[in-house]
Design a protein around this nucleic acid. Structure first.
Lengths: 345, 345
DNA sequence: TTGTAAGCGTTATCAC
DNA sequence: GTGATAACGCTTACAA
């Protein structure tokens, strides 16, 4: 049972018992030392334990810890599309907030697949996560409701779900659209095409689309909507082509519902040989390259880091006052306009 | 102890014991059912357990499971920069490979900070990960060596570390640079500037840089290198400006060591009013927007998904034959050229 | 085929 | 201050 000092040997992971022996103390004392109850230990005991632990390279086993105390120190996050830079940026905020609180983050990507979403949800639950940040792909209302009933705090990111009593953190979509429309009108565009992926499942898409239609009417603009999966490049290009070829003299502009739409639209416009600016282009979500595509693409930037941090903050608040009676709130952030050449007619 | 059916009640998570009672079976049988030893159970027993589990919404507690059996079902991944699309793409591959094997992935982002890297490493270890995919930021050789000695399989992604006997999965950097130089020469560029972040820590950066210098000499091209943190936009722009303003008649081109460098270089070239193609531009790493910046930026694409999957495959191979004597191997993938207008003089 | 019982490494509850 | 000791939910010999 003696530890071997040869380099090639496989060392078992050190346990609390070995540290206790090495320090001439009991498991309890060592446990106390590592559970931030050091004050209760005598200085000499503290020193001995510290030395022993260091010598043995001891690290408490989180699995055992969570099994006993119910504290896994784990926050789960469900991301609908990890390859979306917006999601990653928010995740980065979540991550920072977790680290500041000594929590670890377990991220699962659902690739926008409801089946994977369900599985990952069950998985995270089985790892006893202490909170869940969810960017929903489908509508796993039942599963989420079950988790809520088990007392796991939940925060919905961006997309909200009707049936679940959880907080929602995200953009103030209505005001973002208003901002966009005001800008486009101010720049002289009078005929708009709104580009979005099908809005069935994702609530912000619905809100944005509805608001677009309302806003266009209110401002006296011509407005039209095109919804379709962005993968279908040809269809998209045709739709945009038709829009641009239509009779009429009002300056035309495209408004893209998110970063992916902006990417697809830019591709299509280039293929059609349109000149940006002359044909207006504006997108929600700021991306690295928006400034690089001549003459620069106007965007509405979301405060991604703040959104991520807010999500974790909600989670923690919920956990402290484990108060499931608190009405589900909405935390909305404002988008900020980054004007560029693509809306300078 | 009866479960309440009222919606507002907090249900405790169901345990194996409750399922056993409900099914009129023993814990062992239930355990067997969920450990893929169903064959050993009679059909009737299987049905009863299935029914009971379903009725109670039972899910095995992974924490407890790993505590006993040593099987956490967890793979850890350390990413140096989660906001780098290349890293995310590789991570996506890792994720898929894990899922196919019934493993969960725990991702930690180090933001290129060695201190965070050390912490995260310890953290992952404390969650008893069964394997580690590491995209190193610093040189945590000691920590990694310790993990190896504990018998945790390790794979280094992209960046390698001298002192650790672990496999390395990544691009064949030397051949990638060769490919780039051949292409640039074939397109008539005779005077090259290589752009990279400081290569101290990251081994692929060193390999690429060295090979660039060798290759340039071998091909009889004029070649120069500029290394600096990409944040310093002004310095970069000045360096590129100087390069372009130098006397000489050979067509000039920039070769960017990675996606971030390509982004920075493109920005600088636009600011300088250079015409892409006339001034050549080529980058390692394919990004969404490379086709959008007129007239398109030539890139070398890395097979990111394959790299990610290979990393997990290595891990598993290592685990099966828990054979630390196997010499550390290198798995190299080839880059593929995507020619665009930026290298069409 | 099924069940009993002994842990896995930790924390919580008592005693001293 | 400190230390036995009993859980936590599960797996795994070993019996039956």
């Amino acid at each position: 049972m003696r530890r071997d000092t040869m380099t090639t040997t496989t060392h078992q992971r050190t346990t609390i018992l070995e540290v206790a022996r090495e320090a001439g103390a009991s498991k309890t004392s060592v446990s106390r030392y590592f559970s931030d109850e050091r004050e209760r230990l005598s200085p000499s005991m503290q020193t001995r334990i510290a030395a022993a632990a260091r010598r043995l390279g001891y690290r408490p086993n989180q699995m055992a810890r969570s099994l006993k105390g119910g504290h896994s120190g784990l926050i789960g996050m469900l991301v609908a599309d990890i390859r979306n830079p917006f999601s990653v940026a928010v995740m980065h905020g979540v991550e920072q907030a977790c680290r500041e609180r000594g929590l670890s983050l377990m991220v699962c990507n659902t690739d926008n697949d409801p089946a994977q979403e369900r599985e990952h949800l069950a998985l995270l639950a089985s790892y006893q996560v202490e909170g869940l940040v969810i960017n929903a792909a489908g509508s796993p209302d039942r599963e989420l409701q079950a988790l809520v009933e088990e007392g796991i705090p939940l925060v919905l990111l961006d997309r909200e779900l009707s049936d679940v009593g959880a907080e929602v953190v995200g953009l103030d979509n209505a005001r973002a659209i208003d901002l966009a429309l005001d800008h486009l009108q101010a720049q002289g565009y009078g005929d708009l095409l709104y580009l979005s992926e099908p809005p069935e499942q994702a609530s912000p898409r619905q809100v944005r689309l509805t608001r677009f239609l309302q806003g266009v009417a209110a401002l006296g603009l011509a407005g039209e909507v095109h919804c379709q999966p962005l993968m279908e490049r040809d269809a998209l290009q045709r739709a945009i082509g038709d829009f641009l070829a239509r009779p009429g003299t009002l300056p035309r502009a495209l408004l893209c519902a998110n970063g992916n739409a902006t990417l697809a639209a830019t591709r299509a416009l280039q293929a059609l040989g349109a000149r940006l600016g002359e044909t207006g282009l504006m997108g929600i979500d700021e991306l690295d390259w928006c400034e690089l595509v001549t003459p620069g693409i106007t965007t509405l930037a979301q405060p991604t880091a703040a959104i991520g941090r807010a999500a974790v903050a909600c989670l923690m608040r919920r956990r402290e006052a484990d108060d499931r009676t608190t009405p589900a709130r909405r935390v909305h952030f404002q988008a900020s306009l980054i004007p560029r050449g693509s809306t300078r007619g």
